[in-house]
Design a protein around this nucleic acid. Structure first.
Lengths: 259, 259
DNA sequence: TGTGGAATCTGGTATATACCACAATGTGGA
DNA sequence: TCCACATTGTGGTATATACCAGATTCCACA
């Protein structure tokens, strides 16, 4: 256990003209390579912090730093007291298609599982009321669902539907596309939608459901679905693991539809 | 050193059994409050790590943990060896409007500054060639610009334009909206666009230009701009500070085949 | 009135150590 | 055979310390 503090610079494969590559960055780079070249496939377990520290001859805290960096980048996820694993590949979500993500995923063969976390009748708060175009305090159905792909949680969604327009909504099976449900049962078909995407930190519940590390960031996607008369009948808020998705959209200037 | 670590369990309800609140979370919460209630306004300096450690009677590393968490959430940004500061408010970007963000920002009174980092004629690599619909190796103009709002860097963008369609492009002033430039000088008006949004880690250059912490995540937004005939003439890739923006879009259902 | 340089401050990296709480595994006894 | 219990492993939190290098400040000297 000699030579604790050494700070010798291993200029070796020095590419960067910067000062000196921090040791933890070496670990980061190594694992990035291993993930990129397939040595580590998705969901494969990484060595433990202690093992990495040992192998690289660094302290556990430094190993941890490297792993935290990989996690922050989304290349790796961790399960509390079980280990760290390679993140699966991103899924694509075309937000321009108002077909529910569920339906879209189905058609592309994604094994999407839905867990209903919570479902209840409640009253619209200011936010929900504005989005749904109902009175403050009006009855709405609110339900939260967790979406997994191959067993791996990728996002959690809370949706609000206008109770007056969708009586008995919660009696239906929520393990399916909401869009389809609304269309089949209530003759409400999506005609347009407003979508917003932003990056933010996960709330406590999202952290738990998605199995995220504390204070980690992800992507919030909110959408308001409107019928052909422009009235909104469904408001949803999704929170995605940051590394789990790629969102695409198509923009068309003005209203001119050519075809 | 007397115990000082107490860890009595409060037994939550779900699967997770939350133990005692970690000390660093207290710091996180405090600053969150101060930012929320306006005690700390945007760009205000937070106390240094050492000062926080002192005031909360925690170690510097624990204080650092708290600050890192705040930074990961985007509430705070740090400047190397200068300090940590409260992040400014998000800007909104409607990606459905094919008007350049610059133009849109102007009209809303944002003080947007553009710094041209790099501008050159180069040859399309596989990626760029595909997006622009040109031959691999075809001549393109490539330029990188850094965008600041009130002096605070918010995103960096690299755009590629088809050199054949836009001769002498780089001779124009790039401190303006590209969309406008293309329209005014080359009669190329945006008619549609494909946009993709995803969260990822910053590259080394992005880290430097945006003044980010190492390995921090942000949002990549790529867009392909097409003319009325569907041909693409501009391909751009933006990397945004994660906390800096909110992206909105409007989706319209195109009734087609229903499976 | 500068101006150069030292002192001080800041975040960044790194180590060593300790304990906690839960997960997985292994072992012995009923 | 099956279950209770101990052992081991893992990530999570926390402390104390050290040095680095750039940013800032301020003061003495020209």
């Amino acid at each position: 256990m000699d030579a604790a503090v050494q700070y010798h610079e291993t200029h070796g494969s020095g590419r960067r003209v910067t000062t000196d590559t921090p040791r933890f960055q070496q670990v980061v780079q190594d694992f990035k390579s291993q993930i990129a070249n397939g040595t580590l496939v998705q969901h494969a377990a990484l060595p433990s912090e202690r093992r990495i520290a040992d192998e690289y001859d660094i302290s556990r805290m430094t190993a941890r730093r490297a792993l935290d960096a990989l996690e922050a980048e989304g290349l790796v996820y961790s399960e509390d007291r079980r280990g760290r694993f390679v993140s699966p590949k991103r899924v694509s979500y075309d937000v321009s298609k108002m077909v529910s993500f569920v339906a879209e995923a189905d058609s592309r063969g994604l094994a999407l599982e839905i867990e209903v976390v919570r479902a209840m009748k409640s009253q619209a708060d200011a936010m929900v009321a504005e989005q749904l175009g109902v009175e403050h305090g009006a009855e709405v159905y609110a339900y939260t669902r967790l979406f997994r792909n191959n067993g791996h949680a990728i996002f959690v969604e809370t949706e609000f539907v206008n109770a007056r327009r969708c009586p008995g909504f919660l009696e239906h099976d929520l393990h399916q596309s909401t869009t389809r449900l609304l269309e089949a049962r209530y003759d409400l078909s999506a005609s347009a939608g407003d979508i917003a995407i932003l990056m933010r930190a996960a709330t406590a519940e999202e952290t738990n459901l998605l199995g995220l590390a504390k204070n980690s960031a992800g992507i919030e996607l909110t959408q308001i679905i409107r019928d052909s008369s422009g009235r909104s009948f469904c408001f949803g808020r999704q929170f995605w693991r940051g590394e789990a998705a790629r969102f695409s959209a198509r923009a068309i200037v003005e209203r001119s539809v050519h075809d």
